[in-house]
Design a protein around this nucleic acid. Sequence first.
DNA 1: CTCTCCCGCCACCCG
DNA 2: CGGGTGGCGGGAGAG
Length: 905
Amino acid sequence: MEVNCLTLKDLINPRLNFAIEDGENAQKENIFVDRSRMAPKTPIKSEPIDLSKQKIFTPERNPITPVKLVDRQQAEPWTPTANLKMLISAASPDIRDREKKKGLFRPIENKDDAFTDCLQLDVVGDSAVDEFEKQRPSRKQKSLGLLCQKFLARYPSYPLSTEKTTISLDEVAVSLGVERRRIYDIVNVLESLHLVSRVAKNQYGWHGRHSLPKTLRNLQRLGEEQKYEEQMAHLQQKELDLMDYKFGERKRDGCPDSQDPQLLDFSEPDYPSSSANSRKDKSLRIMSQKFVMLFLVSKTKIVTLDVAAKILIEESQDTPDHSKFKTKVRRLYDIANVLTSLALIKKVHVTEERGRKPAFKWIGPVDFSSTDEELVDVSASVLPELKRETYGHVQLCAKQKLARHGSFNSDQASERIQRKVNSEPSSPYREKQGSGGYSLEIGSLAAVYRQKIEDNSQAEAFANQRAIPPLSSLEAAAPFPSLSVDSEYCVNALAHPVLSVAPTDLQAFSAQNGLNGQGGVSLASAALEAESLKPALLAGQPLVYVPSTSLFMLCGSLQEPPSPGSGSERDSRGSEGAAERSATPSVQKRLGEDRKPREEEEPATKRQSRDCEDGPLSLVMPKKPSDSTDIASSKTVDKRGPAPHEDIHMNGQLSAAKEVSGKATADCFISSEWGNPSRNTEIEKPLKENESTKESSLLQYLYVQSPAGLNGFSVLLSGNQTPRGVGPSSGQLPPLSVPCMVLPSPTLGPFPVLYSPTMPGPVSSASSALPSTGPVTLGLPGLGSTAHLLIGPATLVNPKSSTLPSTDAQLQGPHSLNLSPVMSRSHSIIQPESPVYGGHPASVVKLQQSPVPVTPKSIRRTHRETFFKTPGSLGDPVLRRRERNQSRNTSSAQRRLEIPSGGAD
DNA sequence: CTCTCCCGCCACCCG
DNA sequence: CGGGTGGCGGGAGAG
């Protein structure tokens, strides 16, 4: 009873006790993981579901046949928790509702969490248990985009040709905790791009992205044939003329609709390509292909939804009524969500006289048709233009190309590019003092941007951007659309679009690398975005790329197809570790890349979800003067004026952070906001003990919140390391290694936080290029031993490096953040088992501010499944920590990184 | 308010 | 004809 009371109360006032709640929640969530369920491939077993909720799963049913959700309740033996819930529900309809929702989501979460048993921390938390309920998943958490990410995380982006992965819709639906209907939406879009194909009822074959370039090329061709570009131009023109569009008219004159109806079949060998599409194909598949075509034929690579909707309506010959338009737009959003998850497009806004219009920008993969020299030339020419994005793509291409063709190795490519750049005296990006290769300095870029902005030469800036020569039709579009082209579109110069560039790049990289291109994000970019244009923020700071959620996801994708047993880990986090290992190889093969680590970085980029909006990333700088730490920063950035701004900025943030901390808000909160510096310090100290770090106080920390994707996994980076590592050779990119602390997101409260002070240990030499420091490996519990976050302590983050992480990453192994499983294994400083890992986590967490008091036990809680396993609990099981949505703040991405709870038991 | 887009009813159509 | 598919649009959350 008592418990109940508490619970209710909590529910009622969810916001109270953040910290506590979170922690508790987390615990709870962890609680139920059903392993059986976890295995992806395996059909799920019947799990008991909590009744109160839901519909979603049916317990016993097999995956194969989808069950309808029934609300059945089961009379099964309840676990104490279950009983509690029941009571609660009975007590209040609201609560019940809440629970219900929770239940719905949990499954999803669980899966993620579940992946490895390790994860499960169980919580049992008895008393506290219910508290979390309060939070119910936000809409974002239920979004198709997020769902899609989860879906994609289950399969390798580039599966080995030998392996055929089949997708059971039922299984997926169950594992993801959603209705099958939603899966159809995802699969249909994926099918339109030939990432999957239907093989049988309820069964789809997973092809991965291997043929994506080809598919896109074909779509582009078709789009050109269809004259979509003209149509778009026409529509836009029209709009200009008359505000309202009249659909009645056929805007496009002669575009043959011709073959629309069928999915374009590009003869993909793998599976019989799309089955006949008998249905009406007005389907989402067709719409998806057309939508993609619009991007591919667009010069700006930006397509507004209204234009796309109009074109689709016209083609369908439907009468253009408003409701049709509205419906079309809805569908487009659905498609866009999936495409965004694939890192093919990103949300932007086009500003017109009328106002802003929702639009999407193509950020898809580039092709590698260019010659090496072309790539080098382009890279060199672009660099000066501030086209980080393009530059990044180019570099990537070059490097990949090298890997593939062997003409150069990535280093060589980098050198050549740099050489080229250097040969141009005017180039602001000339390699600086040997530090590190050609990587761009963010500070420089920021400065330039700022300058341009200040000069009010936004237009100019854009114009410059335009300069970039397109590598190929499919190539990523220039960061900014040229104004001239579509005058009607005014991309907000300052706003997201601009800033977003970086992320895009990253995404591209990741995608190209074979990483799942689910989204990329660069911290820098994020930061920039967050700041809304204040480029300053990066200028002085060392940039750090931190793996974002996306990273995890990525890893997951890389993984091999889920095996039944392991399947559970599929989750993003789990996948991380595992994924990398398994995946990596393939990727490497494919790309020829050596280092997986880089990949890791890339992933960071991924987070598409956050895109522009969230500014998950924040830099927290303790005001301490000292920090010299920033060596790195100092060197490059310092020169930039921006630094001051940063400081200011930082201060504000700090204050905010403090407030937050005071409140003991949930981590999420923090994450969203900023790390509390003070807290950080505290934390660090303990952590640091090991190393030298102690001496320097915390200098700067870069707190990276995982926006959407990571399950709330946050990384706290300290800037204080010595820069010593500074760049390896000029040619190479500076490693990004950074000491960092990985913080569990709010929800994760219970999870252990791993912090790697600069680790002295020489990490494996081989793996890490970094000379001085040894990379630190963080073991993620959930991941199993395999997954570790490897961070190279030594280096500071160079702004530069940060800038071009992607590139570097590919080639060079040594980059700071490495998730490579391999390395971790061999060298991991901290292993899951290691005391550090196990023992300290709690403390660490605490440091963190995690509101929730983390007790070791909580951390480790392995979940007692037994406890929860009762049939009834099915729904609950989900309780995974995560659920609670991180409050809205963070955002969408829900994926939290699951860190396995205390190592296994 | 607008933008998003979740949700799930129910029509299709296939086997 | 049952069940897999998935069009469709109401309506509500998020901003």
